[in-house]
């Protein structure tokens, strides 16, 4: 790998994204990797390595990597980091960039559709409310209109 071919601006871009501020402070102590529950299960998933790739400026490789979507957001890395890199949040920043660049996971659209349609991930229809009533629980109302406005989308069919 030739460093000259990498994009030194990438780390600055990540740092400019909310949550990404800490990335450049990393001094590669590896405490994050030691504590990452995903690193133990997935070959190549290594917070310290991901940070290094960003710092080196290997933009495409990072954004296109399926690994960035595997964070369980357990915050363990963030808790143990002596430099306040806040890797969970850094990764959120990276994922946001990736999503904007068209590398997002396919499930995103479905989530937005669902929120636009129901204001929640799981629909609460008559059936659900009936069940709740049977158990003595209050009914739950959906408020998708708010979400449509916030997300700037129309409900994708379905009931509103």
């Amino acid at each position: 790998m030739l460093l000259n071919d990498c994009d030194p601006g990438f780390k600055h871009q990540v740092a400019a994204e909310p949550g990404g501020q800490g990335i450049k402070a990393c001094f590669a102590c590896a405490a994050c990797t030691a504590r990452c529950p995903v690193a133990g299960h997935v070959e190549g998933y290594d917070p310290r390595r991901l940070i290094r790739l960003v710092l080196l400026g290997r933009r495409e490789e990072v954004l296109a990597s399926p690994l960035i979507w595997l964070c369980s957001t357990c915050y363990s890395c963030q808790e143990v980091c002596p430099q306040q890199v806040s890797f969970t949040e850094v990764l959120t920043a990276i994922k946001n960039i990736a999503a904007r660049a068209g590398y997002g996971p396919p499930a995103t659209e479905a989530v937005i559709d669902q929120l636009a349609a129901h204001g929640r991930l799981l629909e609460v229809g008559e059936f659900e409310n009936q069940r709740r009533t049977d158990l003595g629980l209050p009914e739950v109302a959906e408020a998708p209109a708010h979400f449509q406005k916030v997300l700037g989308v129309e409900p994708a069919g379905g009931k509103s």
Binding site: M1, L2, N4, A28, R48, R49, R52, L56
Partner: peptide, 12 residues
């Protein structure tokens, strides 16, 4: 060799 990546790296 980048000790973190475990890869050879060149710089001009």
């Amino acid at each position: 060799d980048d000790p973190v990546l475990g890869e050879p790296v060149d710089l001009r």
